[in-house]
Every structure is written in structure tokens, then in C-alpha cells.
Design a protein around this nucleic acid. Sequence first.
DNA 1: GCCAACGTTGGC
DNA 2: GCCAACGTTGGC
Length: 151
Amino acid sequence: MNYWLMKSEPDEFGIHDLRDRPRQTEMWDGVRNYSARNHLRAMRKGDLAFFYHSSCEIPGIAGICEIAREAYPDPRQFEKASNYFDAASPKDNPRWSAVDVKFVRELKRVITLQELRDNASRLGDFPLFKRGRLSVLPVTAAQWREILSRE
DNA sequence: GCCAACGTTGGC
DNA sequence: GCCAACGTTGGC
């Protein structure tokens, strides 16, 4: 099993929105960055992901979700009215992928970006700090455990 | 709202 | 294939 971190702006879609969805499941669409997309495609059903709140008052990890459906073509890329429409994406070889995520639980408290930074040495090479603004990124099992131990 | 850090695009 | 210009992300 693999671990991931997925970013979302809580004003748009936060961990509570996922919790309140029918079947507590939602399509994770709109990823328009190739390395993030490649991470989506590497996800397997049952993998776990940190649900990270970005662009908000207190950025950090707010909950845990599970990959409920593996990568499939993101329907938004073909919808002209969508912000995520991509006229250059071939119908027979869609450029962008989505997965379905299912709510697992909220964390007892948000583990903030500040706190993660303060403990960077214990996390080792953590892509959240480095690879720019990637919205979907891998987490090692050791990092997963280390972060949850702070809860 | 600013701006640094990246990623993407497109001219050459 | 280089790289400047441009766009986006996301913390602050």
C-alpha cells in the first residue's frame, strides 16, 4: 500500500465536505499538472492519503481519505464550460486523470505546515517542502507514521 | 494582495 | 533543445 498527500482549498472543498458527501466519496478532478497527474495514475485502490488544506488561515493536514477508485479520464477536460476544459486533450487518449476518494476520518487536530516544517529533520526528504506547488504528492510509510504520531 | 518558486509554452 | 516569457500555486 502507498501513501499520498492531496491538497485542496477548504473554501472550495474541505475534509468536512468530503465527510458530508453521499457515500462520503467524491471525484478528485481538476489536476492539471503532469507530475501530479502521474501520481494520481500510480494510486491503487485502498491507498491512503492525507487531506491537506491549502490557501487558508492555517494550512496543514486536516484528515485522511482513501483511494476508492483508481485513475480514470477526468470528465472536466471535455466540458467546454468547465474551468478545467482542455481543448488539446485527445478523446482517444485523454490527457488528464481523476480518482475517487472516500472519507476515512478527520485528524483530532490539524497538523500545521508550520509544525511539519519545525520537524523537517524527522521527516527527511518531504516533497511538500520542496517540489514547488505540487497538489498530489507521495508520502513514505515512515513519514506517514511520523506525522500521525504527532496527532 | 504580494511575490517566490516552479511549471508550461512557444519562438528560434 | 534552449530559454525567455508567461501563468499558477500557495504561504505569508
